[in-house]
Simulated scan of single mutants.
Amino acid sequence: MLIPRIFTALILVAIVLGGLFYASGQTWLYGIIALALIALFESARLSQINHFSVQVLFAVLGSITLYFSLQYLSVLTFVLLTIIVLSTMIFVVYRYQRTQGRIGLQSRFLMLGLNFLLVLVFTNAMLQLQGKVSAGLLLLSMAIVWAMDTGAYFSGRAFGKRKLAKFVSPGKSWEGVWGGALSAFVLSLLSLYFLLPEISIQSLVGLSAMLTFIALLSVFGDLFESVLKRQANLKDSGKILPGHGGILDRIDSLLVAMPLSYLLWLWYF
């Protein structure tokens, strides 16, 4: 299992780097829409839509709607949707944990709608960051989340004792979260120093702290998907990525982090 996981991860990194730094804007657009299509298909499965044809229909219609919606998505609408979606996700995770797994998100309509809006704001953020901010800062925004996940994994295995949300994701610990946050903060400090050479010390520390805060919030993307998987009695969102599961299993944290990162860079610049 480890070798397929590493091999798949290397392929994914190559695709991301190639898309960011070598693909045209149009190719990047189509690539992100294709990613959204798969994510919507898997989200239908997590929403307990068991008929394959209905899953495909939701994914196709959803991605078409998403494609045309992006052309009319203003910054204000994006901000409002991001606040609504993330607040709802946090509430669902909190309630599921507080009720010891008894009350989650039962309405399929709400699950489908929430997942669609989550993919919508993520897609818009990925396109705007690549087109209007910079490929380097987009890569950094993703790398911060990966550093958070990696740091949390190793520090959790080494020091984890206090469960973060045992009814949602028993393997996560508070020690893992803080270890991941430290990894994210160090990476952001070093990366911003080279990416923004004119930045002041105060801005460097401030931006690194905000990126780390975003990385912390990204954990709710993972936890929210865990709630949906537990409700649907599924281990993974899909099987498209050998050793990793589905697309949503790989981008669940990014679904939260990318919209917030876009707002951060929009404010900074």
Rank of each mutant, 00 (worst) to 15 (best):
K163N: 10
L195T: 04
S155D: 04
W178E: 10
W174D: 09
A184M: 08
E198G: 05
A165T: 09
L195P: 05
Y193Q: 15
V145H: 06
T150R: 06
L182Q: 04
L187E: 12
V168K: 00
V168L: 01
A152T: 00
G160M: 08
K163V: 10
L192Q: 03
K161H: 15
I199L: 10
G156Q: 07
S141P: 12
L164A: 01
W178L: 13
L164K: 00
G160K: 13
L189W: 04
L187G: 12
I144C: 12
G171T: 02
R162I: 13
L164S: 03
L192C: 07
P170L: 12
S155T: 13
S188P: 01
A158E: 09
K161T: 13
Y193F: 14
L196H: 11
L164M: 04
Y153H: 11
A143Q: 08
A152Y: 00
D149L: 00
K172Q: 14
G156M: 08
V186S: 05
F185R: 01
S191R: 05
L190M: 09
Y153Q: 10
P170F: 10
L190T: 08
I199E: 02
G151E: 02
P197G: 00
A147F: 07
F194L: 15
T150P: 07
W146Y: 11
A147I: 04
Y153E: 11
T150K: 04
S191G: 09
A158D: 10
F154K: 02
V168W: 01
L182A: 09
G179S: 06
V145M: 03
M142W: 13
G179M: 02
M142K: 12
L182T: 08
K166V: 15
G160H: 11
M142S: 09
I199T: 07
Y193D: 11
A143G: 08
S169Q: 03
P170S: 14
L182D: 05
V168N: 00
V186D: 04
M148R: 00
E175C: 10
L187D: 14
A158K: 15
G151F: 04
V145W: 08
V186G: 04
K163R: 14
L192E: 07
V145R: 07
I199A: 06
